[in-house]
Design a protein around this nucleic acid. Structure first.
Lengths: 241, 241
DNA sequence: GCCGATTTGTCCGTATGTATC
DNA sequence: CGATACATACGGACAAATCGG
């Protein structure tokens, strides 16, 4: 898949850093050495480095060099600051995912739903409620709204497996970006029931609302993810510009 | 401050988008037109556009154009996915910030503190507890650990105002990036006392832990921010690469 | 379906500026 | 001061995707 040269270099360097080929705080070889090694132009190499900066893996310092500031994240994390489906996250952490579909309906977006989903009122969508388990522990309840026009042929069976797998491999849709808002909200009766939460223990939970766009610039999904608070971790790296 | 051409273009386009010079879903003028308008090379313009993509303002589509996908965010938000000090966020939202220093001490990092701060045991730091108000409402308790070596001369008086203002304008330090983890945790007695929270209402809160690096690639700050759950909102835009 | 025009994506080489050592 | 290293910018070439005729 990584056709572009800069992406190949980016992945190679990323892997090397993850496998501790450079110590924490150590400088990477200077640009001119790496351009020789990868037999590419300076621009191309710099583009790869720039991706690593965005990931929080390295820090560039004018006149000094490129410093490795990567630290492995804890094992327990399964929700991180990238676009990744539930199954992908699970797999990456060596855990067994399971998905139960609680509700699968088709509906037209109401005025109230329009106000928080970002879809126009009347838009035809699939509305799906799903419960995600990790190693048989119910962790997340997802409320998905998929634009019917952009995601035709969605079924309950697909929803039980990976919707993203269907989108990318069957419909050949490309997911481009996702705007997310994280908040903390009171748990509802539904949360309590399905996530087996005890109000005396935790009475609120982490909620991630996201609007996702495909390569046509169309928002095809609105999702509200409600996470068990004791298992929720969200990673992020912010870069000052 | 925006000396670089690409940054000037980036800010100009960003402002135009925020002020609705382009409708949601509308295409921006093609590259060759914009390079003429800004009298710059194609690469420079593309760099500016790329920043807007990272911000989630636009979406580029090969063969089609650059689509505006910007939507204004709600007023209530004061915590977003950028590096921004408390006072900066407050100002941006037209609110009055106030800071109360609860504790200001110098200490050597213990083994236990080392495990979550990322500082080595024995490192000399300032440990500061601060309570942040917005329009006289206590919203956030911060536990700051500043590397003494990198932030010399910190005082309680500075902590009562803006530490970041001191870092940038007096010490001339440049903040580069910040790795953050968001979690949901039980509220403690300290939280309850200072944020005037009622356990029957909310018994947990949003916690943002961050490690911040300066332009020397040195982690000079670890901070745990504990947010009143009902006022916490965290924005993020993820881009698939 | 083909073809050409348009538009963005990738890559290169080079020049100059700026910060560090 | 010179050498080294990253930052910015330009211009050109070709590839890939899209769209209209």
């Amino acid at each position: 898949m990584p056709k572009a040269i800069y992406q190949t270099i980016y992945r190679d360097l990323k892997e090397k850093i993850e496998q501790n080929e450079f110590a924490y705080q150590e400088l990477l070889p200077p640009e001119h050495q790496l351009t020789k090694k990868y037999d590419c132009s300076r621009n191309t190499l710099r583009r790869a480095i720039s991706c690593l900066v965005t990931d929080g893996y390295v820090q560039t310092m004018q006149g000094k060099g490129v410093r490795n500031i990567y630290r492995p994240i804890e094992q327990t994390s399964f929700t991180i600051g990238e676009i990744e489906s539930f199954r992908e996250s699970a797999k990456r952490n060596g855990l067994t995912p399971r998905t139960r579909v609680l509700l699968f309906v088709e509906l037209a977006v109401s005025d109230r739903q329009a106000s928080y989903t970002g879809f126009s009122p009347g838009t035809e969508v699939y509305y799906i409620q799903r419960l995600h388990y990790l190693d048989d522990l119910p962790l997340i309840i997802n409320h998905n709204y998929f634009l019917k026009e952009a995601v035709p042929g969605l079924t309950k069976e697909i929803a039980e497996n990976s919707i993203y797998d269907y989108l990318e491999n069957t419909l050949h849709m490309t997911i481009v970006n996702s705007k997310r808002v994280m908040t903390v909200e009171k748990i509802t009766e539904i949360d309590e029931k399905y996530l087996k939460l005890n109000v005396d223990d935790y009475n609120c939970m982490a909620v991630v609302s996201s609007q996702t766009y495909n390569s046509d610039g169309i928002m095809f999904e609105y999702t509200q993810s409600r996470h068990r608070p004791d298992y929720f971790r969200f990673y992020d790296n912010a870069v000052r510009r």
